[in-house]
Nucleic acid binder design. Structure first.
Lengths: 224, 224
DNA sequence: CCGTAAATGTCGTCG
DNA sequence: CGACGACGTTTACGG
C-alpha cells in the first residue's frame, strides 16, 4: 500500500467522463493495483478510483509534471497529474483475514424460519429458498387453514421487495397444486410507500423484531 | 486528514455487527470526522467505516492499548484497538472543488428529448419529467398516429426499470384523456431478462447509442 | 462467466 | 428530514 498526499488533478474516462480540478488529495495505491483518490471529507466513497485489476504507468508531461495513467482491460483510464507531493509513505500490510458479519438478511431469514409462528398461530414452514424459475422464494409456509403463503424477508422493506414478491406470487399461483398462494412481506422496517403498494395488492406486511427473534433462540428466555 | 498505518482490530455495532481480527491496515480520519479502515486490497469500499457526522473518543484499555471509539447520533459504534503504529501522518487538505461528470442518465434523457425522432418518424415530445403521483415519467411523447407513449430512459436496462415503467403505464392509462398509453424502454444496454419481461408486457425496447445521440448534436454532422 | 439480489450501500434531489 | 431513484454502484452468490 502506497499513500500519497499531493496536489493533483484527476481525469476519468470510461463508463462516464469525470474531471477533478487541482486540489490537495490523498491517493492510495493498493497492493492489488487498485487506486483511490480521496478528499478530506465525504463518506467512504473516493472522488475517483480504479478497481483492480489494472495497471499503473508513471510518466511526465512536457513541462515535467508527474502523470500516472491507470488503465484496465475495459479501456477505462484514470489520469492523475501530480503537481506537488506533500507526503509519500509505503507499507506492505499483508493479507487481511477479512470481515465477520452478523445480522444480515440471511440471518434474519434463518431466524424467522425457526419461528414462523410469529407470523401466526398454527403456521408451519414448507421450505426455505423455495426455487422458482425466476429465483428462490425466501420462505414458503402453510397457515392454520392450510393455505400456502410465500414470505419475502427483507432488512428494509421497499418497493423493489414488493415487486419481487409480486412476481413470485404471480408465478406460484399458476401452480394448481399450490394456488391460491398468499403473500407476506416481512421486514425490520417497512417504508410507507412499500406498505401501501403491498396492501393494495393484498400482501400482508409484518414488521420483524430482530432482537426478539434472536432472543427467542436464547435459552434464558425459556425460563419465563 | 489523518492517516494511520497500524496493526489493529475493529468492531462495528449498528445496523449489523461486524468484527475485524488483528492485522495491519490503513485508518483514515477525515476532516469531517469520517473514519475509514482499509486493507491492502479490494475495491474502494473500506472493510469498516463510520460516516460523518460522528465523534471520536481516544482512550486506553486496562493493558494500555490505544482504543478509538467512534460513535454517531444513531448510537452506531466503531471501536478500533490500535496495537502498533507503523505510520502516522496528518495534513490539512482544505476543501475540494468537487467532481464534474458527463454521460450519466440525465444527459442521456436530455439528448433523447432533443432527438425523439430516433424512436420513430413523426414522433414529438409532449414533455420531460411528466409528473405522476408515483414519480415523474422520463419522457412523454406522441407517436406518428397521435398515440401517447411513456418512455423510461436508463443507462442499463434491468428488471427494476421495467417494473417502474409498468407502474407509470398502469397509472397513466387510468387517465381517460391520455389512454391508451404505450410504453418504450430505452437504454444503452438492455438485459435479456428485462427485455423479456418488457416485451411480455407489450413494452417496446430500444437500445440507445450515446455517441450517435451526442453526435447528432455536433454541428459537424450537419455538413453531411 | 453471466445474471440476480443484497448492501452498515452512498449520493443527489425533491417534497 | 424522509422518500425515491441513480450509481463508473460494488459485492456476494448460483447456474
Amino acid at each position: 500500500m502506497r499513500i500519497l498526499v499531493a496536489r493533483c488533478t484527476v481525469e476519468y474516462a470510461g463508463r462516464l467522463t469525470a474531471r477533478l480540478p487541482e486540489a490537495n488529495r490523498v491517493i492510495m495505491v493498493k497492493a492489488d493495483g487498485a487506486v483511490l483518490v480521496h478528499a478530506d471529507g465525504g463518506s467512504y466513497k473516493p472522488l475517483n478510483w480504479m478497481s483492480a485489476p489494472c495497471s499503473l504507468l508513471a510518466s511526465h508531461d512536457e513541462s515535467g509534471v508527474i502523470v500516472w495513467t491507470v488503465s484496465n482491460k475495459a479501456a477505462e483510464t484514470l489520469e492523475i497529474r501530480i503537481l506537488e507531493v506533500l507526503a509519500d509513505v509505503e507499507h506492505d500490510l499483508g493479507p487481511d483475514p477479512g470481515l465477520v458479519k452478523d445480522g444480515v438478511e440471511a440471518h434474519l431469514q434463518e431466524l424467522l424460519a425457526l419461528h414462523v409462528h410469529t407470523l401466526g398461530a398454527g403456521w408451519s414452514l414448507i421450505r426455505r429458498e423455495h426455487p422458482t424459475p425466476i429465483g428462490p422464494v425466501d420462505l414458503l409456509c402453510r397457515d392454520a387453514n392450510g393455505t400456502t403463503v410465500a414470505v419475502e424477508v427483507k432488512r428494509r422493506g421497499e418497493i423493489d421487495g414488493v415487486e419481487q414478491l409480486t412476481r413470485y406470487l404471480d408465478l406460484l399461483n399458476r401452480d394448481a397444486l399450490l394456488a391460491p398462494v398468499r403473500g407476506v412481506f416481512a421486514a425490520q422496517q417497512i417504508r410507507p410507500q412499500a406498505r401501501t403498494l403491498a396492501e393494495d395488492r393484498g400482501i400482508r406486511c409484518v414488521v420483524l423484531d430482530y432482537e426478539a427473534l434472536r432472543g427467542a433462540d436464547d435459552p434464558s428466555w425459556r425460563l419465563f
